[in-house]
């Protein structure tokens, strides 16, 4: 249980996907104007990231590596993600129209989201992954767990950001700071907050 807790803290807080590793900054800045849309985006990204890890890790480990085709990983992964996003979109539209209305519009954006390709690339780097999670061996289970937790970290930071921005919008600001600059400054303070968790790690 101790390790499990450590993994959660390491993946969600210490190595937060957005403010520490700088992955998925585009949606972090672009879709964080309202809390509801931020939450929708976060959940959609988490879902896609988890399933992506479930598919790409075995694909790389058991098909590409034995065949000596590691250099094709980028092309294969981007194909898998694009197809996966399409399938998830169809499935959600078919089985749960309310859920589709809530997060359907974010799904097409996810294909070109660097967080998803980033997690697929990260989990196949075994040495880095083991030190990051603090485990001694790597398998599909850990890969999927990391995908899920990285998604949770992404959701947490994008939701916090949207809360901050709803407040920032009401401030009187110099013209030059409006828009992206003040959002970056808010992110700067968020990153400082997350930096504190380094002490625990």
């Amino acid at each position: 249980m101790g390790t499990f807790f450590t993994i959660i803290v390491m993946a969600v807080l210490v190595n937060n996907f957005v403010v520490v590793q700088f992955l998925g900054i585009c949606p972090f800045l672009g879709v964080s104007k309202k809390t509801s849309s931020a939450l929708g985006m976060g959940v959609a990204v988490t879902l896609v990231m988890t399933i992506t890890c479930l598919i790409t890790y075995p694909l790389y480990e058991y098909i590409l590596v034995p065949l000596g085709l590691e250099y094709l990983e980028i092309i294969v992964f981007i194909f898998v993600i694009a197809a996966l996003v399409q399938m998830i979109e169809r499935a959600i539209r078919k089985f749960s129209p309310p859920l589709y209305r809530a997060m359907g519009i974010y799904l097409p954006l996810i294909t070109t989201n660097c967080a998803v390709l980033g997690v697929a690339e990260l989990v196949i780097d075994k040495a880095q992954m083991m030190s990051l999670l603090g485990v001694t061996s790597m398998n599909v289970g850990y890969a999927v767990l990391y995908g899920l937790l990285a998604g949770v970290g992404f959701t947490a930071s994008i939701v916090i950001m949207s809360g901050l921005r709803e407040k920032i919008d009401r401030l009187k600001l110099p013209k030059a700071l409006k828009g992206f600059p003040i959002t970056m400054l808010a992110a700067c303070f968020m990153a400082m907050g997350f930096y504190v968790f380094n002490m625990i790690g």
Binding site: V19, A176, P181, I182, M184, L185, A187, Y195
Partner: peptide
Amino acid sequence: SSSAGAFFVYGMSIALFNHIYA
């Protein structure tokens, strides 16, 4: 050199660039 500094420098640079550009 920390991640917070990245956001800070980038944000300030955008502000300065936009100001001069205008």
